[in-house]
Simulated assay, not measured.
Amino acid sequence: MKRKTQLIHGGIVGDEQTGAVSVPIYQVSTYKQERAGKHTGYEYSRTGNPTRHALEELIKEIEGGYAGFAFGSGMAATTAVFMLFNSGDHVLITDDVYGGTYR
């Protein structure tokens, strides 16, 4: 697919649960579990949900990457990236990086 088509039709197509042709926005916080620690893929929306998963798959596909990641805030994204470094590593950034990071 061309890039414009991928933006519309890339990633995860449809919703198996409802038959919707695009993934709906799931506005729930928790998902039913058979028992503690045994779930069908999602347990709590902060750790993952079908809507965010579809967005991450689309990002991965469009960018030709290994994985896509979506965050609820700039600081959450910044924290995840900085967790990749070790104590003593040097990081160079510009002053137009996300505001909370620069401050």
Rank of each mutant, 00 (worst) to 15 (best):
A36I: 03
Y102L: 03
D15F: 02
R46C: 07
V81S: 11
V21S: 08
A76I: 00
R35Y: 00
A70C: 15
L7Y: 12
H9D: 05
E57S: 12
G37P: 00
I25L: 07
S22Y: 04
T94F: 10
G14L: 03
G19H: 06
L58K: 15
D96Q: 06
E43N: 11
E63D: 12
A77P: 06
F71Q: 08
A36C: 04
A54V: 09
V13K: 01
L84F: 10
D15Y: 03
T94Q: 13
D95Y: 06
T47D: 13
G72H: 06
Y44M: 09
S45E: 05
P50H: 05
P24H: 07
E16C: 03
Q17M: 05
Q17H: 04
I8E: 11
E56F: 08
D15M: 02
T47A: 14
Y66Q: 10
I59M: 01
G10T: 07
K32V: 13
M75T: 12
E63Y: 10
A67Y: 08
H9I: 04
Y42P: 02
M1E: 05
M83K: 05
G65E: 06
T101M: 15
M83P: 03
A20W: 03
P50W: 05
I93A: 15
E63F: 14
N86K: 13
V28T: 02
R35K: 03
Q27R: 14
M1S: 10
T101D: 15
Q27M: 12
L84V: 04
A77H: 06
T101I: 08
T79N: 14
A70E: 09
